[in-house]
Amino acid sequence: MRRLFLLISVVLSLIVLGVLTKGLVSGRTDRAPAGGAALVAVTVPALNAKTREGEVLFGQNCAGCHGDNAAGRDGFGPPLVHRIYEPGHHGDGAFHLAAARGVRAHHWPFGDMPPVENVSERDVERIVAYVRALQRANGIN
């Protein structure tokens, strides 16, 4: 009886978690894409020299979890081209702190983000410029 209660509790908890997180990612309808697929569609704008440099740095340091063009990766990390990361909610300083110190999971069910090794403040500046350019091109101001 006790095992049955525990099993039912676990199943119900997973269902509730699924319902609560389903609407976090815009454009998601029924199930999350499999195998690290992008979580959102991203329009990539024309980039200037600074944002192109940020694109390269993002690819080297961030895309493994946050996906190509900051579209997120199912099972790995959230999209940064998302209203949650708009400048009014997560300012540029939040990105600098996250890279330097890591960040505890608080918006998404991906787990904590570790600090990013070997990324300078200048690198993070370029990465943030790139992410902000992507956000603007996708209606996130």
Rank of each mutant, 00 (worst) to 15 (best):
H66V: 03
T51V: 01
A105T: 02
V81I: 01
A37Y: 14
A49F: 05
A34N: 10
A37T: 03
R132M: 02
C62K: 05
K22R: 13
P87M: 03
A70W: 12
D74W: 15
F76S: 12
Q60N: 11
V116D: 08
V42D: 07
E55R: 05
V44T: 07
V44G: 09
Q135Y: 14
R31Q: 10
D112R: 08
H89N: 05
G111L: 13
A129Q: 02
A70G: 02
V116M: 14
A94G: 07
F110N: 06
G91Q: 06
H82N: 03
Q60W: 12
L134M: 02
C65Q: 07
V119P: 08
R3V: 02
A32P: 02
T29K: 11
G91S: 06
H82E: 03
A41I: 00
R101K: 06
V40N: 08
L6P: 00
C65Y: 14
L134A: 02
S9I: 00
N48H: 11
I8C: 09
D112H: 11
P45S: 12
L12N: 04
F95T: 01
P87A: 10
N138G: 01
V40L: 10
E55S: 02
C62F: 15
L97P: 00
S9V: 01
L47M: 03
A94Q: 07
D123H: 12
I8H: 04
I140F: 14
G23N: 07
I15F: 15
A49H: 04
L17F: 15
T21H: 15
G27L: 03
H89S: 09
D112V: 08
R136L: 03
R104G: 09
V128A: 13
R52I: 00
L57N: 04
R52T: 00
V119E: 13
G93M: 11
A46P: 00
R132Q: 04
D92A: 13
N141Q: 08
V124N: 13
L7G: 04
A105L: 07
G88D: 07
F95D: 01
G111K: 12
E121I: 11
P79I: 02
N61Q: 09
A32V: 03
R52V: 00
L47T: 00
A71F: 13
G91T: 01
E55F: 08
D74M: 09
A105K: 08
